[in-house]
Amino acid sequence: MKKLSLGIFLSALLMVGLSSCNPKRIDSKLLLNEVLMVNENNYMNDYGIRSPWIEIFNKSYNVTDMAGCYLRMSNNPGDTVTYTIPKGDVTTKVAQRQQAIFFADGEPNRGTYHLNFTLDPEKTTWLGLFDTRMKLLDQVTIPANTLGADHSYARVDDGKPEWEVKGNSSKKYVSPKANNMIKESNPKMEKFAEQDKSGVGMTVSAVSVVFTALLLLYLSFRFIGKYFSGRDEKKAAAAAQPVATVKAEEKKENKSAAASDEVYAAIAMALYEMQGGMHDVESGVLTLVDQQSAWSAKSGFMRAKPERK
């Protein structure tokens, strides 16, 4: 019965764990974030020229280096162009939650951020970002004739999976090297301020989580405790059995026992010393721990200071 309930508990725990695994999660730190194909009045490059651009976003909360990564573009199967982000340029390190812009002007000799291909809005365009070992980090396909002048194809918010066309309304703006959605307030805070003015909602949910976490710990150690108590009882019973058998034989045959009480006392004392912290258990290191007792107490051997009466 104990084993059955332990099994049920562990299976439930395993199921909760496995069901929470989300294989669809994007684990890549670097993501394609926004693409602009027809640049008439938008972001200018360092040569003062307007060209199509691709924005990469560092989703992580740590600096990430793009050096050695690959940006690939294709309009038709088999015509893939690859641009390798050069190594040795310190500016390829993107700060946490920041963006980097690459200009698709077909002029790679102009610097690290100038790609060896251009973008054609009249053709379906596939863009892929690969890491240094050619593992796909992110990809996006922009259908032909989707983007007009100064319109971009961008993630709704930085790093979010949904894409949309931006630049055609005041709420959906093109945002080179800036957040795709400007947040003027903390939405979580607003939600709490609006829906949980008294704090009861937070209290109920937080207390339930605290209780559930500690309840799980309680249940785990209840089972573990029962298992170990049972095991110890069995061990104690097994240890007691040979002694009883020997004593019974001793009585029966009227001979001396295989081990006398003194032997058991000596074994018990040795065990006590072993377990009582005489030595630590680091392998290969012998450390004697000073055991204070009445025998080693200096005060026991000192004469009392004579007092003048």
Partner: peptide
């Protein structure tokens, strides 16, 4: 040795959320 005491530890956390409110 007495894991149900964990729940007592959890109950005392009401202080946090009482003060929050």
């Amino acid at each position: 040795s007495n894991p149900k005491l964990m729940l007592v530890g959890a109950a005392a956390q009401f202080g946090i959320f009482g003060a929050y409110m």
